[in-house]
């Protein structure tokens, strides 16, 4: 087992705990935006799609990588935009609490 793999496993295990910890404090009303927001975060797969795009050789690999980049971009961009749209509505209804200040 090389050092890089050990690092990766450490990151993975810590991220598991972090993931549980971060969400345990979310009120029910924000569950839909949260699901949508976390959906956008896994749009980071675009990074992976970019890497394989640049490493791909031959029409098949390049073609598949091309599709992967498109799908990942839709996930990332659409995910953040749709979450923002949902949350936009939460802002306006913060009752006169200083939205104006």
């Amino acid at each position: 087992m090389n050092a890089q793999l050990v690092n990766e496993i450490s990151i993975f295990v810590l991220a598991v705990f972090l993931g549980f910890e971060v969400i345990s404090k979310v009120p029910t009303i924000l569950h839909t935006p949260l699901m949508s927001g976390s959906n956008a975060i896994h749009g980071v797969i675009l990074v992976g799609a970019m890497v394989i795009m640049s490493e791909a050789t031959g029409p098949l690999q390049i073609g598949v990588a091309f599709v992967a980049v498109i799908l990942a971009t839709i996930n990332m961009v659409g995910g953040y935009v749709v979450t923002d749209r949902m949350l936009e509505m939460f802002k306006s209804r913060n009752p006169r609490g200083g939205a104006r200040s």
């Binding site: 890089q4 690092n7 990766e8 990151i11 993975f12 991220a15 598991v16 705990f17 972090l18 993931g19 549980f20 971060v22 969400i23 345990s24 569950h31 949260l34 699901m35 976390s38 959906n39 975060i41 896994h42 980071v44 797969i45 990074v47 992976g48 890497v51 394989i52």
Partner: peptide, 26 residues
């Protein structure tokens, strides 16, 4: 997160795992 291990990229591991863990809990 699996892809993070495949291409050796830490940001995929963190991003994917965060969603995997929090999504399971949700």
């Amino acid at each position: 997160a699996g892809d993070g291990f495949v291409v050796g990229n830490p940001v995929l591991i963190v991003g994917g795992t965060l969603v995997g863990a929090s999504g399971t809990f949700l």
